[in-house]
Design a protein around this nucleic acid. Structure first.
Length: 1028
RNA sequence: GCCCGGGUGGUGAAAUGGUAUACACGAGAGACUUAAAAUCUCUUGACCGUAAGGUCGUGCGGGUUCGAGUCCCGCCCUGGGCACCA
């Protein structure tokens, strides 16, 4: 009988599917007895392995896909055989540009194209025999799935992490369409070859930068390949430095230009400044610029440049002096010129730099070209042998030496010179001293800067999740404004006020946060007068008041017949008796402390009182009393600091945001999902909006807040959205009440092992870690799961074309997996993809190599044939040892993803078997370790031995330790480190006995030839080196 | 320019500081066959030598070590990623 892969592979795939042998069990196998310890809580039986779910493109499966899938499949199968309840799921990341572009071209609805592609991918994946649990299949374009993606977006929105801002996007002048970076090729539109320019466009952003530090710090908690951690850290790019304010010299204008620098110690060497062409201060300066036309032309030109031109290709620096504008270096009051140049980027730091040409390569190049002053302020250290400054010395307390110290530009660390009070200091000390000086003189401060930018979350495209927001003009007009009233002795610049103000302003609200007069000796009348002169309290006003501010609010409203929309009072006192027992005469004199509650109730639409039971000043009974009297909503919280003297107070913000005050309004949860409507044309329209903007039926809705006429948001989400949480959905894919139940999440999260491509390290991996942390923070992911989604992350290398180049249609070197499966079989393809080289490296495809793997499987097949005839067990000590060595090596290599050497060892074993006969029990052990690699072949041979149940449900074999050790070994004999002889000795022979035997050897005698033995190095069971 | 990999036979590649080139491909020779394919066996880093054996050899130059493909320093080449990151 020949090895007919086509027949047996199909048969077993069908049988496995019928028997559902790869189904993961959702029930906890162990009681949740120790919820603190994730290992115990999850039960040792559960194991979650994950691959990146594919984008179902029209091209079908690439041979690169099975590399990762087979690797994790082998791991999943081994874990299953080790008795674990393995979750190995699959799904589709199906929103995105390629399908949409296909729709534009052909008119085929993306939904139809996606369905077809998924069908094809499913067939292909099933033909490879992966042990996926298909019952958990998910699809990001399924409304039942993206309902939750939308729900999560609303969580970001409500927690202030989603905001809208103007962003530069790539705009194709001909297609009139916004392009992804990927669609811009050499500065031209990939679709039509036309001009691309930068255009400012409002975009939804998600504030990932808020998590920058945590995303770095928490890498300590996880087991990722070091280079993956490195890449994430570099991408987030934390740098410590200072911001420095430079005054613009002008009679009329009072503006500062703020810069960020990592080298505040070189401030004395700053001889000019540069603004990015997009810098927002430029319009303000225009009235002072004498060469305005030249400047405008330059800005216009740089707009046309793509990032590519501005960065890589452009060697020659360009720029224009803003004539008439000078800035003042705060440290020495020198006037320096201000330039605009596109080598400075808007997105990083403040979009402006102080240029120190003597100590920065780019600044130097620019300064030379435009004849700007170069001033040395750092002396390179002398290179003295063994000094800590020696080139290459690690960057320790003294700092690292970079660059060529002989060259004109020295950007390393050294000693400050020509720098007044810094002169003579080493760079690190000089940095610190300058920062102190900046802070003392109020012209700068210590700043941590990150390269990481916020996540551009909107697309003006069709094939994505609609952003579930509604714009209502009426509500926008009725937008509330905020009045902050601070406490006794306090000011609006202290505690949580600055933070709360910026949070609300970010959401587009007007906030009036005055420093109330005489707050040490406050007087109701005086403060009321001050407010009425500066702010108009009306029915759109929301008053947020802290402590005594609450009293002010109540009295002010009641006694002046004012109307307000809402008051939020934080720890307001009702009396002048305080918890700390202190008498506060100034507070007692503030007012008469009598409250006309019924009048207050009439004056205000809604009242919220927030208080802390542990408040150190105002006993909770007082705010409670106020709340009761006013029929207010009473919220008891645990304040971050005594009496809410904290810099951030999220509970206050949360309470402000509950209610109908946000604009735009969100779609109520019960109306989710906001389904994508069918459109006829998929091109974005002339206005640059998504095609959804033309769907009148769809965009016109009732405002969920006021019931009036309103319009839907037409932007859609990027496909990173759906992929940021799909691993959570796998735990509970059919749940229609939650994105996943807490029980299901606790059952499987975090993911034990996630393998994917390096290309996803900075985007998908970072986004999903951030997304998970956010969901964790707002409490929808149980604490037990932890705030990191993946315990372990590994990466596979690319599969290149046969010439060693990337596989691509245009090169014509694409290998079709279907053809390989048909000709050689899924098992052969699987084994070859694992054998071709180290798993984490890029490897060129070689169909001849595939043939070698097929031969190996054929040999395995033939061993069985022999065994059928000869059922008599033949004992063979040598073979048995090889078998157990193989069991050991394969088991260990799988854990380390060294699949290539695992397979090599199995080949060695099969070569050793050769024509010999092997007994059935030992043969079974080999089939079991082969099963994860070649599941169909192993299953067929297993069944042929008379087994009724699947080999994949067998126990993973253990090697016999006693069979691994050799009694006799070949001792390597070296003379002066060179191999001279090999002598068979007992493995446990000691040095003295071994030496005796070695010195007997004729070869050794010849080499020593009467010379004196200086030293003998002996490694037991391995080698002896004789030094003469 | 910055960051991260990688340089070992004709090729893909093995090698806890301890026999460099396992395993596979390719090539060559042989067996089987009327023949071919398939399969099986042997050879296969370079050089010298009839042989025994020896010398050299992991991109280059140094160093540490009894011993370096592996560790350290300085270069060169190459692949990938990137947002000129101040």
């Amino acid at each position: 009988m020949t090895y007919n892969h086509q027949k047996i592979e199909k048969e077993w795939q069908k049988k496995w599917e019928e028997d559902e042998i790869y189904r993961a069990d959702n029930n906890l196998k162990k009681p949740a007895s120790a919820p603190q310890d994730p290992e115990l809580r999850r039960g040792k039986d559960n194991f979650y392995c994950l691959i990146e779910f594919p984008y179902p493109s029209g091209e079908g499966l690439h041979v690169g896909h099975p590399r990762s899938y087979t690797a994790m499949d082998i791991i999943a199968r081994k874990k299953r055989m080790e008795g674990k309840n393995v979750l190995y799921p699959i799904g589709w990341d199906a929103f995105g540009l390629p399908t949409e572009n296909y729709a534009i071209k052909t008119g085929v609805h993306p939904k139809i194209a996606t369905e077809k592609n998924i069908e094809n991918f499913t067939r292909q994946l099933k033909s490879l025999g992966f042990s996926f649990d298909w019952s958990r299949e998910i699809n990001t374009t399924d409304p039942e799935y993206y309902k939750w993606t939308q729900w999560m977006f609303l969580q970001f929105f409500k927690h202030g992490l989603a905001y809208k801002t103007k962003m530069a996007i790539n705009w194709c002048l001909k297609c009139k369409i916004g392009l992804a970076n990927e669609e811009v090729v050499n500065g031209k539109c990939e679709r039509c070859g036309g001009e691309v320019e930068k255009r400012q466009k409002e975009q939804w952003m998600i504030k990932i930068t808020k998590y920058a530090q945590r995303l770095i710090d928490d890498l300590d908690k996880v087991d990722y390949l070091p280079r993956i951690k490195d890449q994430q850290i570099n991408w987030i790019g934390r740098s410590e430095g200072a911001t420095v304010k430079f005054k613009v010299k002008s009679e009329k204008l009072k503006v500062d230009i703020e810069v960020f620098t990592t080298r505040p110690d070189t401030l004395f060497g700053a001889t000019y400044m540069v603004l990015a062409p997009e810098h927002e201060i430029i319009p303000d300066l225009k009235s002072q610029i004498s060469n305005l036309k030249e400047v405008d032309d330059y800005i216009e030109k740089s707009k046309r440049k793509s990032d590519l031109e501005r960065t890589e290709l452009q060697k020659e620096k360009t720029g224009v002096d803003l004539e008439g504008i000078k800035a003042i270096n705060p440290v020495n009051n020198e006037e320096i010129p201000v330039w605009v140049a596109d080598y400075v980027l808007t997105g990083y730091g403040t979009g402006a730099i102080m240029a120190v040409p003597a100590h920065d390569e780019r600044d130097l190049e620019f300064a030379k070209k435009f004849n700007l002053q170069i001033k040395k302020v750092v002396q390179p250290p002398q290179v003295i042998p063994n000094s800590p400054f020696q080139a290459g010395a690690s960057s320790g307390a003294i700092g690292n030496l970079q660059g060529d110290i002989e060259s004109e530009c020295f950007s390393g660390y050294g000693m400050s010179i020509n720098s007044d009070f810094l002169s003579g200091l080493l760079t690190l000390d000089a940095k610190e001293k300058m920062t102190e000086w900046l802070e003392k003189n109020n012209v700068g401060k210590k700043t941590v800067n990150y390269k990481l930018r916020d996540w551009v979350f909107s697309r003006q495209r069709y094939w994505g999740e609609p952003i579930p927001l509604v714009h209502c003009e009426k509500c926008a007009e009725a937008k509330p404004k905020f009045l902050f009233l601070h406490a006794f002795k306090d000011s609006s610049g202290r505690v949580f006020w600055p933070w709360l103000k910026s949070e609300l302003e970010k959401r587009g609200f007007e906030v009036f946060a005055p420093n109330l007069p005489n707050s040490n000796k406050p007087n109701l009348k005086e403060q009321t007068k001050f407010i009425s002169e500066n702010f108009n309290i009306d029915d759109k006003t929301i008053i947020v008041a802290h402590s005594l501010g609450g009293v002010l609010a109540m009295k002010m409203l009641a006694e002046n017949n004012l109307k307000a929309k809402k008051i939020i009072m934080v720890a307001p006192p009702a009396k002048t008796e305080f918890k700390d027992g202190k008498k506060r005469p100034a507070v007692e004199e503030f007012c008469d402390w009598k409250f006309n509650y019924s009048k207050i109730k009439k004056a205000v639409g809604e009242v919220v009182v927030i208080a802390d039971k542990e408040d150190s000043v105002v006993p909770i009974e007082q705010p409670k009393e106020i709340a009761t009297e006013l029929n207010a909503k009473f919220v008891e919280v645990v304040a971050p600091a005594p009496h809410f003297n904290c810099v951030e107070a999220p509970m206050i913000l949360d309470n402000i945001l509950t209610g109908d005050i946000l604009n735009p309004g969100w779609v109520p949860y019960e109306d989710l999902p906001v389904k994508l409507p069918d459109v006829k044309k998929y091109e974005p329209i002339d206005s640059g909006e998504s095609p959804l903007a033309n769907m009148q039926d769809w965009i016109n809705v009732k405002c969920p807040k006021c019931g009036g006429e309103a319009k839907r948001e037409t932007d859609t989400m990027p496909n990173w959205a759906g992929s940021s949480w799909y691993f959570l959905r796998y735990t509970d894919p059919k749940n229609n009440k939650e994105f996943a139940s807490a029980e299901a999440l606790k059952n499987f999260m975090p993911v034990d092992w996630y393998n994917g491509g390096m290309e996803h390290t900075t985007l998908h991996l970072l986004y999903s870690r951030f997304w998970h942390k956010f969901l964790y923070d707002i409490g929808v992911i149980p604490k037990e799961c932890g705030d990191e989604p993946y315990k372990k992350r590994t990466s596979h290398g690319m599969i290149l074309g046969e010439g060693g180049e990337k596989m691509s249609k245009s090169r014509g070197n694409v290998i079709n997996p279907d053809e390989m499966v048909k000709l050689y079989g899924a098992d052969t393809l699987r084994v070859y993809e694992m054998f071709m080289g180290p798993f984490d490296q890029a490897i060129p495809w070689d169909t001849k190599g595939l043939v070698g793997c097929r031969r190996f499987l054929e040999r395995v097949w033939k061993v069985k044939m022999k065994n059928e005839k000869l059922k008599v067990a033949v004992k063979n000590e040598k073979l048995l040892k090889e078998l157990h060595r193989t069991i050991k090596k394969v088991g260990e290599d799988i854990e380390e993803m060294k699949f290539n050497t695992a397979i090599a060892q199995m080949m060695i074993f099969i070569n050793a078997v050769g024509e010999e006969e092997i007994d059935v029990e030992n043969w079974k052990l080999f089939l079991q370790i082969l099963a994860p690699f070649a599941p169909h072949l192993a299953e067929e041979l297993w069944a042929n031995l008379g087994n009724k149940t699947s080999i994949h449900l067998e126990k993973w074999p253990e090697h016999d330790k006693s069979l691994i050790v050799d009694e006799e070994i070949e001792l390597i004999v070296q003379i002066n480190g060179k191999l001279r002889d090999k002598i068979k000795i007992k493995a446990d022979l000691g040095e003295e006995e071994a030496k005796k035997i070695v010195l007997e050897s004729e070869k050794v005698k010849n080499w020593i030839d009467g010379k004196k033995i200086k030293q003998v190095v002996f490694v037991k069971g391995k080698l002896m080196n004789i030094v003469i």
